[in-house]
Computed example of a mutant assay.
Amino acid sequence: MSQAVTGTTMLRRQIGRKLESLRRAAGLTMEQAAEELDRARATLHRIENGAENVRFRAADVKEMLNLYGASGEDTELLLAMTAATRENKNWWHDYIGSGLPRWFQLYIGLEEAAANIRHYRPELVPGLLQTRAYASQVFAMPGGAVDADADEERERAIQLRIDRQALLTRFAAPQLSVILNEAVLRRPVGGGAVMPEQLHQILKAMELPNVTVRVLQFSAGLHAGAMSGAFSIIEFPEDSKGKEVEPPVAYLEAATGAIYLDKPHETAAYNTIWADMAGRALNESESKSLIQQVAEEYSRA
């Protein structure tokens, strides 16, 4: 797997998955391993979940691998993998501590590594499609992850959102599929001065071969997404044997944190919700027509 494409996030997830497997093979619970290593359980939890803020010292990794009875091959591999996390830095690390909540760091890395991204948004345009003016309105709202009163922090958060959009036009860009509730189009974020530009940006993005946007109209009635709220499903590339390098992840975001779900039954539940909405949404051509119509309504208002 190319580090140029994935940064350290996928690498850390693979390290965590491998260490968890070795721990379980050694017959140790996380509590037992933490006690033997004189570490906090929370530290091992972060390691096994691929947290970005874990620093792998070679001596600590060796101690862990010795406890787990790792083979010489596994030891050599994991020492090389953990060393790579100290040598690589994701482009978005410059934003940490100023506009980028720590719980969002993992998502950024997963997004960078994705082959397919699906977003359902009931209230707002997804960040990958937002204009600067629209993003400015979103980050100005109180109660969000970024302090709305801190101008510098807010501006850096907005710039990060704009920078992320290069993902859609890079080499080997992921496939982006979006379902928007009609409310996203009808809600006048920033009023007539912002919405026409925003809706035209969505239409422009839909011209890309890897971007699909569909609208779920009010007339579709009750749908599975009405109970779930906003969510994303992230799927990863396949290796030479046709196996995904990482299991899919369902991502749910709140004002002060996020949930990452990667168990098969969890992602299956969100795939079922997506399928229900996809079966009720307008097709892409109909969606384009509706978005264009609403944009014209804003312009005339």
Rank of each mutant, 00 (worst) to 15 (best):
S2G: 04
A4H: 10
T6N: 11
T9P: 00
M10T: 13
L11E: 04
L11A: 03
R12E: 07
R12L: 04
R13E: 09
R13D: 00
I15V: 14
G16H: 06
G16Y: 09
R24A: 05
Q32H: 09
Q32E: 15
A33E: 00
A34E: 07
A34S: 11
E36K: 15
R39N: 06
A40G: 11
A42T: 15
T43G: 03
T43Q: 12
H45C: 02
H45I: 01
I47D: 08
I47R: 11
N53V: 11
V54N: 12
V54D: 12
R57N: 08
A58T: 13
V61R: 02
V61E: 04
M64L: 12
L65G: 05
G69E: 04
G69N: 08
S71H: 11
D74F: 04
L77V: 11
L78D: 01
L79S: 09
A80Y: 04
M81N: 13
T82S: 07
W92V: 02
D94K: 15
Y95T: 13
G97Q: 05
R102L: 05
L106I: 03
L106R: 13
Y107R: 14
I108W: 01
G109V: 06
E112W: 02
A114D: 04
A114Q: 06
A114R: 02
A115C: 02
N116V: 15
I117V: 15
R118W: 09
Y120Q: 11
E123R: 09
L124T: 10
V125L: 13
G127A: 14
L129S: 10
A133G: 07
F139G: 03
M141Q: 14
V146Y: 00
V146I: 14
D149H: 11
E155R: 08
A157Y: 02
I158N: 05
I158D: 03
T169R: 15
A172Y: 03
A173G: 02
V178G: 12
I179W: 00
A183E: 04
V184Y: 01
P188A: 09
V194S: 14
M195T: 08
L199V: 06
Q201S: 03
K204I: 01
M206C: 06
P209V: 07
N210E: 12
V211R: 03
T212E: 08
R214M: 12
S219Y: 08
S219M: 09
L222H: 10
L222A: 15
A224T: 11
G225V: 12
A230D: 07
F231L: 03
S232P: 00
G242S: 09
K243M: 07
K243L: 08
V245I: 15
E246L: 15
P248M: 05
Y251W: 14
L252Y: 12
E253F: 02
E253N: 08
T256Y: 10
A258H: 04
I259D: 10
Y260H: 12
D262M: 06
H265V: 06
N271S: 13
A275P: 01
M277A: 01
G279L: 04
R280W: 04
L282Q: 03
L282E: 02
N283C: 07
E284A: 13
S285W: 00
L290F: 08
L290N: 09
Q293D: 10
A295P: 00
Y298P: 07
S299T: 06
S299P: 01
A301Y: 00
